[in-house]
Design a binder for these strands. Structure first.
Length: 294
DNA sequence: CAGAAGTCCTGGTCGC
DNA sequence: TGCGACCAGGACTTCT
């Protein structure tokens, strides 16, 4: 369940280990991993081969790598269980290996650095995948043009977000998960930020005052930055790792997954409620439901 | 048109 | 022990 901080760690890994390398061969081992590439796996492989990769970029939980000398990019999303790994070319295939990218220097043996490695997309549940798209004039893959900037983006407009939030006719957690309003916030960090803000997940966005929405946004940022700080150091290795071992589950969570455990603020047992085929975790005392709640 | 609900997918876990 | 039900959940598609 990689969230934005984990995806950023992956982006840094890609920047370090695959930027500047030229694709020699692509193997698509599962069609679902390229389902967002309409022309299919064979086309995906053919269009990638021979191109040099640029510097990986990120918006929300999307990653993309521009192809040098083209106006297109490889777009990636890790979904729930996806990993992008830089592995020695002779390492055994992972059980759920979906896509392999070999580079022109992949077989360079024992040379120092990235040479001798290949890029692998591994994904158990295949919610994630890779695809190739034309860029917009902004250099963004066209299919993610509707994705809002994320709160760690220096160009994120706090005032505009707060104004848009209050105009929505929905509840606050739905809004936090709406990728056209703010990107990169998943179920876990939404619950964490709401707990820190002492807001119930069904609070109507229209009832949030400006200070309350500012506080909420601040907590979203804090949660992400804390996770980034914790996970960012675990990556000083050959592996572009995104899964639990990279410290993701080591970070302390105050709300998510803590049903029946005492609230870290007031000691009241935390609760879990079914919500949109998921769960919402909250403190029934610190996060009071809205009065007119259905 | 905005907002809400349905859908995809697999492996781990739990109850009977 | 075996089997089926259930759960995880991001983002797209379909609905109201």
């Amino acid at each position: 369940m990689p969230e934005l901080p984990e995806v950023e760690v992956v982006r840094r890994g890609l920047e370090r280990w695959v930027a500047g390398r030229t694709v020699a061969e692509v193997e698509v081992l599962h069609p679902r991993a390229v389902r967002r590439h309409p022309a299919g796996g064979v086309d995906f492989a053919a269009r990638l081969t021979g191109h040099r990769l640029g510097t990986a970029m990120r918006r929300g939980k999307y990653l993309w790598i521009p192809l040098a000398d083209t106006d297109s990019s490889v777009l990636g999303h890790l979904g729930m269980s996806g990993q992008l790994l830089v592995q020695p070319s002779d390492a055994p295939d992972e059980k759920h290996l979906r896509i392999r990218v070999r580079f022109t220097d992949s077989d360079s043996g024992s040379a120092a650095g990235a040479a001798g490695t290949e890029l692998r997309f591994v994904d158990q549940r295949t919610f994630g995948g890779l695809s190739l798209h034309d860029n917009t004039p902004d250099g963004l893959p066209d299919v993610i043009a509707h994705i809002a900037r994320d709160p760690l983006d220096p160009a994120f407009d706090d005032a505009a977000f707060q104004a848009a939030l209050r105009l929505r006719r929905t509840t606050v957690k739905r809004a936090l998960l709406d990728q056209s309003l703010i990107s990169g916030v998943g179920n876990i960090y939404a619950d964490e930020a709401l707990w820190r803000s002492k807001l119930h997940y069904e609070r109507p966005t229209a009832t949030l005052t400006r200070p309350r929405s500012a506080e909420l946004l601040g907590h979203v940022r804090d949660v992400m930055n804390a996770a980034l700080a914790a996970g960012g150091t675990s990556f000083d290795s050959l592996y572009v790792n995104v899964n639990g071992e990279s410290g993701y589950f080591d970070r302390s969570l105050d709300a998510y997954g803590r049903e029946d455990e005492p609230c870290r603020r007031c000691g009241t047992p935390m609760r879990r409620r079914p919500w949109m085929n998921r769960s919402s975790y909250f403190c029934p005392r610190c996060q009071r439901p809205p009065r007119a709640s259905a």
